[in-house]
Design a protein around this nucleic acid. Sequence first.
DNA 1: CCTGTTAATGACTCGAAAGTCATTAACAGG
DNA 2: CCTGTTAATGACTTTCGAGTCATTAACAGG
Lengths: 219, 219
Amino acid sequence: MTESDTAPPTPPRRRRRKEARPGEIIDAGLAEFAENGFAATRLEDVARRAGIAKGTIYRYFASKEDLFEAALSSRLTPFFDDVTGMVDAFPGSTEDLVRAMLPRIYAALFEGGLHVMMRIIITEGGRFPAIAELYHRCVIARGREMISALVARGVRRGEVRESALTDLPMVIVAPAVMTIVWKMTFDRFDPVETERFLAAHVDLVLHGLLAKGPGPAVE
Amino acid sequence: MTESDTAPPTPPRRRRRKEARPGEIIDAGLAEFAENGFAATRLEDVARRAGIAKGTIYRYFASKEDLFEAALSSRLTPFFDDVTGMVDAFPGSTEDLVRAMLPRIYAALFEGGLHVMMRIIITEGGRFPAIAELYHRCVIARGREMISALVARGVRRGEVRESALTDLPMVIVAPAVMTIVWKMTFDRFDPVETERFLAAHVDLVLHGLLAKGPGPAVE
DNA sequence: CCTGTTAATGACTCGAAAGTCATTAACAGG
DNA sequence: CCTGTTAATGACTTTCGAGTCATTAACAGG
């Protein structure tokens, strides 16, 4: 009240923010799509979540599907860039590398927002081949290269045995995928403790990969 | 033409088959739900696939959701019954048991129709808690018991080491879950060879579980 | 063959959500 | 302060699919 001369007491209901809108709409859209899936999401709800009117969405996106694709494309985070570098540059043993890398992947998934993306890809990927393909090219394929690099490096150093795993390294991250699926479906009545799950994952991978077995677990 | 007196030349367009209908509708419904998800499935399409009119569906099911739940409930196959028995009755080593069991699980999934069910649970489970809970109780929980039994038996026999895996045995089937997810989303442009995947899975699990490592792979 | 019962049909209703557009008002530039 | 541009609005139109129901015809039993 005392400062009603500097700031307008009633800020305008409408605001023109051409730059900020698309990003806000995408944020709201991702949240709704992750929660309800593509078909069951109402643009009315997306608009409400973004604090705008439904019509405004159509100033920036031609259709619901267009928004969906734009939203997913905008989040192809270059998460794996530095992790790939990490594999090559890593000074220590394969065991140490695994013990460093899996927690990082879990953190990106469950503390960062990546699992929201994964959830959408898993539930809708089958019905949006273009998006699945994009995601495959930008994230999955690079993740696989990273794991391949890890295995190859281990074999080179004589720490990792040759096996069926050598040419199918994706199997190594399967427990993380399972965790995502579990959280999507069963978590509310049978919750997963991510840390314990991660520990079991590390344990399985180390014993499964290493030629001589890992050292004692680090606490 | 020569036998046109025994069979009616023009079979009636309508046929009254009160007994057979529900099953046929469920089959058609499952296929459509697996393909499109719940929200995007049209009952018109379910009807066409079942070779009937849309109205007929409502003679047997009260609503789309009712059909969905009936369809999923009808396929809670007691697949794990005999497999659980198999664990306890198995005469051989843990290694042989794993080598027998994982292929069976994969066969049930990918040659039997179980993966269709899994696909629906994965994509829709989050939005249908009642169904997820049912499936969890009837399939997932029993699967976990089975794996637990396998691990416990192995520990008892001195073949399996104690580890973080001992109390989180689900991690052991994670590669199978990942295979389902992969087939749902990326298979069309980067197909998985199920056999090779299974081989890598067996390899990982045996090295990950056994105290002394497995014997040479059996061809 | 005739006839009553009821399974099956598909045109219809109705509601919900996608997408449109004439109107409104925020802001910039004069 | 005035005014033109255009971002924003929300009531409106359109589309689409779930669910209804009066009508039709398959079959059974007489």
